[in-house]
Amino acid sequence: MRLLLVNDDGINAIGIQALAKEFEKDYEVVIVAPEGQRSAAGHSITLTKPILVRKVNIPGIKSRAYSISGSPADCVRVALDKLVDGQVDVVLSGINLGLNVGADVLYSGTVSAAIEGNIYKIPAMAFSCELGEEPNCFEVAAKHAKEIFEKVKEDLIKNNIVLNVNFPCRKEEDIKGIRVCKIGGIVYDYYFVENRNGEDEITLAIKGRHNEEKEEETDRFYLREGYITITPLHYDLTNYNLLEQVKDWL
């Protein structure tokens, strides 16, 4: 089985390297990642300038690896079109440095890269890990990522879907289990800090306030309780329930 590993944190990020080390033990792995940090790139692609591709060697990893000057979605597109010989069976994206839960999935380059694979009819999984004090978070997350993959891979391929997986930053023995659940609500209340540079120019810096997830049985809720969460995602944004109603409006 051939796996394509991508991310949005860049080729040198600890998350993708932990994932590669775990999966290349048993699978053929090709790594294609941005040359630098591209968090919150969403589903953007590069249209107006060439994409630079470099083959790189990552210490401790035997798999072929490439960095590109584009976005996470570009990584998938470039890999499938130019870098991988033969069929890619599954796209794995991550492990992201920080959770992708609730409305984060709309902005996440990690999730968008997985969805880009699915657009090409390739099943995909997006992995993200909470940032915290536990030093071995990403090694623990990579181990669980592979265990989950082993359990779901046959059904994943049959159904051609995207699974969004999030890991709490806890010691192995403190992880309570796995919960399949819906995504939570918007709990990051972003606002801008303004610096005025004269009369005609201002600089805006984004900040965020984190509010508690009030709804139970969501990804945020279960992660706070110490569970790994899995949410199946669907990128077709059509509201089918309203199709006929909107026709009537016209």
Rank of each mutant, 00 (worst) to 15 (best):
R38Y: 12
A142Y: 05
D219V: 02
K25Y: 04
I119Y: 08
K25W: 06
G102E: 05
P135G: 03
V76G: 11
I31L: 11
R220S: 14
N195T: 10
L204K: 13
L163T: 07
K207L: 06
G177L: 02
Y240C: 01
L99M: 14
D219N: 05
T218K: 14
D174F: 02
G98Y: 03
G184V: 10
R38C: 13
Y227H: 15
I58P: 11
L47A: 13
C129V: 00
G198T: 05
E199N: 12
C75V: 13
L92G: 01
E22H: 04
K214C: 04
F138A: 00
V76R: 08
C169H: 05
S108D: 06
L233H: 09
N159M: 07
D200F: 11
T238V: 13
N160Y: 03
C169W: 04
T231K: 00
I14S: 10
Y188A: 13
D248G: 13
E139C: 03
I68P: 15
D236G: 11
N160A: 07
T218G: 12
I14V: 15
R77P: 04
C137R: 08
Y240I: 09
L250E: 04
F127C: 03
A20T: 12
N241S: 15
R2W: 08
V187W: 05
S112Q: 07
Y240L: 06
F149W: 07
D8F: 10
E217R: 12
H210Y: 00
E28I: 13
S69E: 05
V76I: 15
I119C: 01
E244P: 04
M125K: 01
S67C: 10
E215Q: 14
Q17A: 00
G198F: 06
D189I: 00
R38H: 09
L237W: 02
D174E: 13
E173H: 12
L242E: 02
W249R: 15
V6S: 01
G42D: 07
Y107H: 10
K21L: 11
V105Q: 03
V193R: 12
L83H: 14
H210K: 09
E28G: 13
S69P: 07
